[in-house]
Design a protein around this nucleic acid. Structure first.
Lengths: 208, 208
DNA sequence: TAGATTGTTAATCGATTAACAATC
DNA sequence: TAGATTGTTAATCGATTAACAATC
């Protein structure tokens, strides 16, 4: 980790801004102000400018931002000027949903392997992907320069899978299992916990 | 919204604590310290005590917390002393994955209807659920006291679905579509955006 | 009592917002 | 020039952490 501290929330928002800019660009809009972006994604314009200011000066005072230029900058910041190879471990319903999700490819994320340990699933096709035996995980990760592993297995297996992914050489993990993973600090982990999200919802519903 | 400000992160952590306590309880462990919990879920013990302190005094100085009691308190705080009825809109891969997810039921979340507008899907079974035509959404929500709607449709349809869910009477929405929803303030929304999560990951990978 | 651990306060740290000079 | 909007600073707000008195 280099340089100074950038809030994680800033990065999330940058991702949202970048998608919003894509929409504007698709519509042929060429100029946008921080107030426009703010309005479009539901934050304040000061927040937009502050978020961008961490990375440079992308606008013109009195004018605003060039949509295409700012889009390119945000994509570059997020690491999306290149493509990323991923593996999905777990070919259940969630794994299948992830394989079918078109949004990944549109942003440059490619799935190069789907794995399971269930013999009834191995060899079956999910979309264009053949489910591979988990034994081949390491091989596929190494041979395809896979940097991201997606964990879509039951909680009980998640730690094992995480350990194997790390050993195989991934640098980031997106974890859908409701477990705290124990892995080296240098590996980046994001956990998406459906139950936690629902429970924050119920807390807030109950509260008002 | 009543009372004073409680950080949203506190609620997320409470959900995690509560799952950890369930594990301890299942193992027959009866007493736990804030340091134990902290170690188990990867936060500091001060954080654990502070989070709990928003809601009361649940421990005994010099001793710790009674696992079962603290578990009950956390469940109550999160609104899990009752069950919640939900509908899932969108019977694609993601919708199917959500219907199949056993973790919901274990925490008291029940799916009472799955909807789609695709005639080839309507009438089909997903697990035990028959896919219903979207026209029946309002009826099912009203008749089953549904308070939570899950949006699992493509981004282009998400706003429409959200508006209908709100009109039908849900109080909270879990949104999987990568869109900013425009709905009344009093409706609680949580968005789970897979691409944003991946892009925070790639940013961090690139950065070190 | 001595040892342990909570509940809570105060200090620190970090993120957001408001405001405005810079500048197109 | 007058009007608009950026980039940035300082003020505010909020969350985390450290420390310790209370107390079992």
């Amino acid at each position: 980790m280099k340089g100074f501290k950038i809030p994680e929330a800033t990065i999330s928002r940058l991702s949202v801004y970048s998608r919003y800019l894509e929409n504007l660009h698709r519509k042929g809009i060429t100029t946008v102000s921080s107030a426009d972006i703010a309005q479009g994604v539901g934050v304040t314009s000061a927040q937009v400018r502050k978020d961008l200011a961490y990375f440079g000066e992308f606008g013109t005072r009195g004018v605003g931002y060039n949509v295409k230029e700012l889009l390119d900058h945000t994509l570059k910041i997020l690491g999306l000027n290149a493509t990323w190879n991923m593996v999905v471990v777990g070919a259940g319903n969630l794994g299948s949903a992830l394989c079918a999700y078109r949004g990944f490819r549109e942003r440059g994320f490619y799935i190069v392997g789907v794995f399971d340990n269930d013999l009834t699933k191995i060899g079956k096709k999910i979309n264009e992907y053949e489910v591979l035996p988990i034994d081949q995980l390491e091989e596929v990760v190494r041979e395809n320069n896979v940097e991201i592993g997606i964990i879509a297995v039951p909680a009980a297996y998640a730690q094992d899978v995480a350990t194997r992914l790390v050993k195989a050489g991934v640098r980031g993990i997106l974890n859908f299992a409701p477990t705290v993973l124990n892995i080296p600090e240098k590996i980046i982990v994001r956990s998406v916990d459906l139950t936690v999200n629902l429970e924050v919802l119920t807390f807030n519903i109950r509260r008002d």
